[in-house]
Design a protein around this nucleic acid. Sequence first.
DNA 1: TGACAAAAATACCGTCTGGTATCTTTTACG
DNA 2: CGTAAAAGATACCAGACGGTATTTTTGTCA
Lengths: 216, 216
Amino acid sequence: MAQQQRAANTREAIVTGAATAFQAHGYGMTSLAEIAEASGVTKGALYFHFDSKEAIALAVIDAQHAAAGTIGVALHESGTTGIAATLTASFAFARQLRENPIARAGIRLTLEASSFQTPVVGPYLDWIAWIEGYLVEAAAAGDLREEVNPSTLAHLIIPAFTGVQMVSEVLTHRDDIYQRVEELWLLLLPGTVPPDRWEQIRELLARIRREVSEQP
Amino acid sequence: MAQQQRAANTREAIVTGAATAFQAHGYGMTSLAEIAEASGVTKGALYFHFDSKEAIALAVIDAQHAAAGTIGVALHESGTTGIAATLTASFAFARQLRENPIARAGIRLTLEASSFQTPVVGPYLDWIAWIEGYLVEAAAAGDLREEVNPSTLAHLIIPAFTGVQMVSEVLTHRDDIYQRVEELWLLLLPGTVPPDRWEQIRELLARIRREVSEQP
DNA sequence: TGACAAAAATACCGTCTGGTATCTTTTACG
DNA sequence: CGTAAAAGATACCAGACGGTATTTTTGTCA
């Protein structure tokens, strides 16, 4: 194992460049030539690091999955749990989608990758399980209405959130995404949280939204 | 204008065949050869009826848009309005997406077409405006909480619904779609409808869902 | 510094792509 | 029925595609 650093840099440049291209045109309409140009490398480097175009796309999906994972780690380290973790995660995720090409490409590719040789469903299942974990905590803290099932709710939140993201991208290039996410939560609140917690969680929501949109 | 019937048939076959191909592989990963084969015509016929691959995709989107429009017409003719129209439309739409390749292709292409030469945003805006109309009726009938803005709600329902559709396609090929749509409404109900209407609308929801899944 | 492997650039390949040009069949209508 | 236009099939094209083979550069360490 001689030098790894340069190779690691190149690999990262490829993933980032590929993400930029995929995010703009989708998998099928992006050529290896575009990826090479966006990455600032040649096709030779592409095929030194990856076996195929599909492998590059899977690497981008992996990178987004890893980036999303850091949100969970940060929440864990700050001791955030339950409803607060759910809300914070959703805004942090939205922020990644606004600012990180890898995140944008990842969510687009994950939708398109259902027609890959090996369909990709892992990320959705992981995100659903992840949110479900927070919701179980929320239920234990009395922040969830009794008739609400954490698994069912998680199976709805992830798709609804995904759709809000995608349509916001199409209509406004995600300019309105924080507003839409906040509105989605406000709308879901009465159906998911006991009335005596509404006021408190509405304040929490407003604070999280303020923080995410003010962050540098 | 000599004969139109044969040409109209061929055109329809192309749109249907193209939809089948697009729905399975997306725009970029579908070739004209596949479309021709799925349609049972040759490339010559393709280019007699359409100027380009993109024009075919736009025709598929148009066809889906038209099919969705028939839902609105049927509701109008049966005098259904307000909340009942909103709920019925959502299940009818889900049904089209389960059973009609054109609908499935349309929703997929509408998402991908944001990177077309001429980005397509019309369908989303139309659907939002359409649902908003029903919600205004609902508000007039006292079926909407006062603090809920029909436009805001419509801007959330369409994306959330779209996301539920797409993720259900990826995870279960839409096997669970009626259940997910019903759960989505049950979750949104407390935040959107006054408490004194809950029971009534829950029954309505159950009936509509039963009808749609029993329909031949 | 020389040798050697890792990393990446260059050059190349067969195939398939979207698209066009041309020829053949079908059908309406005088 | 003949014929002209409409509809569609066949044949073809230049270029781009994903992918490979080969060569050059870069860095490491004896």
